[in-house]
Nucleic acid binder design. Structure first.
Lengths: 151, 151
DNA sequence: TATTGTTATACTCTATAACTATA
DNA sequence: TATAGTTATAGAGTATAACAATA
């Protein structure tokens, strides 16, 4: 009661984002750029349109992010095999390894967070968290009737 | 288990931030500017240095935010009573009312989120959330040994 | 000498609008 | 005509460095 549900959630927010923007291998990757790499790692080679849709961001924005990621050697633009308007984005081998390690590390963090909850509280905790997420989604949808529902 | 604790937390993060950046009274306030107003509302009139420290942001950044908030009529710069180098920031009456309503609305959101958790799960949920926040703080502190501990 | 806030400069993320090349 | 990506332009947040006025 005392620290406030809101405050705790915001603290978690803050810490999670800090963790997500982590620097790997001395390469200072920003959160937005890691988000692009994450899409490519999880769904495989994609067009910029697909990345833009996945991140809910304008295609123009993806162009800029990919420019930077290409310059830093994380992403390659190759010709799309069937559509000559489109670009095929793929991770470089080094970036692929980086993301693989990042996936492992995130799994470890997730496990550590689960372990931090007392065993007897875990099920109730997860049910509660899901309920809060769902309710928040409803509240946001009510506040922004025009916006789409995708996360 | 299936959606992933991480993903759910990130969804909540996303939704909370969306809610926090809400537009009030047709005034499009950004998250960063609301953060400044929030400090002034909760700790009262402050210097820019104090706001910068509270937000963990450079004083230069606060100058820019206050410039914008002054132009939009939310904040006033008045002479500091004892230190002529410093500026005393205070909310305008309209912004004060705005922030008061915002506090009420946040309390309502907090109550709605609490209500969304099944009564039998509430205590375990809150214990679990606190534990996760604490563990996350440890993990971040370990990853960034140099950074300060403030939220 | 140290502190408060500013000007100067730069980088990043994001958006809209207009344009080119291709479907 | 519609779509993929680009150039052009703009606003917002953030940072460092140098500087003025004041302590």
């Amino acid at each position: 009661m005392s620290p406030g549900l809101f405050d705790t959630l915001l603290l978690v927010t803050h810490l999670l984002r800090q963790d997500l923007a982590r620097t790997f291998d001395g390469t200072p990757l920003t959160e937005a750029r890691v988000a692009v790499l994450w899409v490519l790692q999880t769904v495989g080679p994609s067009t910029q349109q697909q990345v833009a849709a996945a991140l809910e961001v304008t295609p123009r924005n993806v162009s800029a992010l990919v420019d930077a990621l290409e310059a830093s050697g994380h992403v390659r633009r190759t010709p799309h095999p069937t559509d000559r308007r489109a670009v095929r984005l793929e991770l470089t081998p080094a970036a692929g390894e980086l993301m693989a390690r990042m996936q492992v590390e995130h799994a470890e963090v997730e496990a550590a967070l689960r372990d931090s909850v007392a065993p007897g509280d875990r099920e109730a905790f997860e049910r509660g968290l899901d309920a809060v997420a769902e309710r928040l989604q409803e509240l946001v949808a009510a506040a922004y009737p025009d916006a789409e529902a995708g996360s």
